[in-house]
Design a protein around this nucleic acid. Sequence first.
DNA 1: CAGTATCCTTGCGGATACTG
DNA 2: CAGTATCCGCAAGGATACTG
Lengths: 149, 149
Amino acid sequence: MGDTAVSTLSRDDVLTYSQTVCDGLRDDDDGVRREVLAHAGNRWSLGVIHTLGMYGQLRHAEIGRRMHGITQRMLTRTLRHLERDGLVLRYDFEETVPHVEYALSETGLEFLVRMVPLWTWIVANSDGFRQARQSFDQGDAGQEASPRP
Amino acid sequence: MGDTAVSTLSRDDVLTYSQTVCDGLRDDDDGVRREVLAHAGNRWSLGVIHTLGMYGQLRHAEIGRRMHGITQRMLTRTLRHLERDGLVLRYDFEETVPHVEYALSETGLEFLVRMVPLWTWIVANSDGFRQARQSFDQGDAGQEASPRP
DNA sequence: CAGTATCCTTGCGGATACTG
DNA sequence: CAGTATCCGCAAGGATACTG
């Protein structure tokens, strides 16, 4: 899986910072870190973050319209979770006819910034992943004895 | 939430690349991209990837020993999922006494590289997230009418 | 319009016990 | 040692209907 737009981190950098990951994973007693991280893998979170990043401040329904397939329930849930962690801001215009708008917070933008490289890499290499899966599903799993590196 | 080691991307860059995210989210028919991304948010995936990144090639039980709290079942499951997507390689030494080793693939290392910035940012700002949650849970949710930016 | 309220299915994550 | 096999609770995600 070749050279896609490569990060500025060296392998050693990675392994050094990787220790931070390790430590951070250990003392995450309340699970906040893990749950914030989970926004990366959730079904709709990243899409909502992206949409707000692209279009600025939007109404509830406007977000829904721009995201194919999301239900009202999931949109509300996703927005609540993101708001809870401070990634999204909610503005209630408290008019007689409901009017609420959402926007990315600074924190949310920082999150998006750090998601972009990962996501673009996944998209660029998705064919590779598909092939890996086919091999795996067809029993090519588990190479035989290999020398230690 | 202040200036932690900042990415090299500008806001405009982010929004530009963000379009890639949007497109990629749309035509992910088989869900492969989403499932690869899900490794980021899974309970154990990132820990396994990190451990293999740090220590190189390890036996099943060695990984388990370095990861606090994981059960055999979850370790096996996690390794299978990662292997399936080509992030981890499995080497079976096919001895009479079972002997299997795992290592990060090149793909896996690339994944880790792109996870490091996100994760270190989360760790650095976890207090901020905790505070955001407290405010939210105490009903400070939803600011009142705010001017559009 | 911006949500709740129900109900349902699926899979994650964990505990425990067993096997080649 | 490196796994399976069960059983469990829970939350994610979705479909549908209703409300101030």
